[in-house]
C-alpha cells in the first residue's frame, strides 16, 4: 500500500507542469523514505531527478518499494482537474496497475477521484555523485528564467562563464550578439532576491538554450535556483521545493567536435 497526502496540492500541479515537456514518461519510485523520479529527455542529453521526502508530505505511507510508470502528459491532464487549493492524495495498492489521485477542496465540500493507468517502463538508474563544483551560483529563479528566455530569442546556445567579475551569459545568432552579466549581490534584504556567486576557479561552458529554457518551467516552485558548473561536466540546475524536496536538472555541455 502506498499513500501520500499533500495539503498544498498546487505544488504537485506545478511539478508536473515543470517536467512534462522534458520528460514524456518515467517511473515514480516510491519507498518508505519518499518518492523519487529519475528520467532522461528523449534525446538523452539531460537528466531530471526529482526527490520528494516522506516527511514533506502531510501523511505518507509506503509498505513496499514500487516503481510506478507514469505518462506525464496523462498525469498532467488529471492534475489539471484539481483545484489550486485542493488537498491531493496519491494512492496505490501493491503491484497496482493504476494510481489513484483524490482531490479534496479546502472546505471538504467537493471530493473527486481519478485513476491514472500506470505503464511498465524500463529505466536505467544513474548514480549522481556528490561533488565540488568550480562555480556555484544562487540567484532568483525569475532572473534565471528571464535570462534564458531573452537569450533564446537571440541564439541557440549560451556560453556561461564564471569569473571573479561575475557570471556572464553570452549568445549570438542571426540578429547579433547578447551578453548578460550578473554580479554577486547580497544587498537585497530578502534572501530570495540575492545573487550569491561561490567561485573556486573560473569556468566556461556552452549549453543548448532550449534545455536551459525548459528547466525554467520549474520557476513557480522556488524563489531561488542554483546553477553549478565544472569544466567538461554537465551543468546542474537545482530548485528546492520548500520542505518537500527538490528538482534537479543536469544538461550535457556542448563540446568541440
Amino acid at each position: 500500500m502506498f499513500e501520500a497526502r499533500i495539503t498544498q496540492g498546487s505544488v504537485l500541479k506545478k511539478l508536473v507542469e515543470a517536467l512534462k515537456e522534458l520528460v514524456t514518461e518515467g517511473n515514480f519510485d516510491v519507498s518508505s523514505t519518499g518518492l523519487t523520479l529519475q528520467a532522461m529527455d528523449s534525446s538523452h542529453v539531460c537528466l531530471v531527478s526529482l526527490t520528494l521526502r516522506d516527511d514533506g508530505f502531510d501523511h505518507y505511507r509506503c509498505d513496499r518499494n514500487m516503481a510506478m510508470g507514469i505518462h506525464f502528459g496523462n498525469l498532467s491532464k488529471i492534475l489539471k482537474c484539481a483545484g489550486n487549493e485542493d488537498t491531493i492524495t496519491l494512492k496505490a495498492e501493491d503491484n497496482a496497475d493504476t494510481l489513484t489521485l483524490m482531490f479534496e477542496s479546502a472546505n471538504q465540500d467537493r471530493i473527486s477521484d481519478f485513476d491514472l493507468k500506470l505503464m511498465s517502463i524500463e529505466s536505467e538508474h544513474l548514480g549522481i555523485p556528490d561533488q565540488d563544483y568550480s562555480a556555484e551560483i544562487k540567484m532568483p529563479s525569475a532572473e534565471y528564467q528571464r535570462i534564458v528566455r531573452d537569450l533564446t530569442s537571440i541564439g541557440d546556445t549560451v556560453l556561461i562563464s564564471a569569473t571573479k567579475e561575475g557570471i556572464k551569459f553570452s549568445t549570438s545568432g542571426d540578429v547579433g550578439t547578447a551578453n548578460i552579466t550578473l554580479r554577486h549581490n547580497t544587498t537585497p534584504e530578502k534572501p530570495e532576491e540575492q545573487t550569491i556567486i561561490d567561485l573556486k576557479e573560473p569556468v566556461a561552458l556552452t549549453f543548448a538554450l532550449r534545455y536551459l529554457n525548459n528547466f525554467s518551467k520549474a520557476t513557480p516552485l522556488a524563489p531561488q535556483v542554483k546553477l553549478s558548473l565544472t569544466k567538461d561536466l554537465p551543468i546542474f540546475v537545482e530548485y528546492q521545493v520548500g520542505d518537500l524536496g527538490n528538482v534537479r536538472f543536469f544538461l550535457a555541455p556542448k563540446i568541440d567536435d
Binding site: 542529453v45 537528466l47 548514480g127 554537465p234 543536469f250 550535457a252 568541440d256
Partner: peptide, 13 residues
C-alpha cells in the same frame, strides 16, 4: 559542436 549522452557522465547504479 556536439553533445554526448548525459548517461556518459554518470555511472549506472
Amino acid at each position: 559542436m556536439k553533445q554526448i549522452s548525459i548517461g556518459a557522465y554518470f555511472t549506472s547504479s
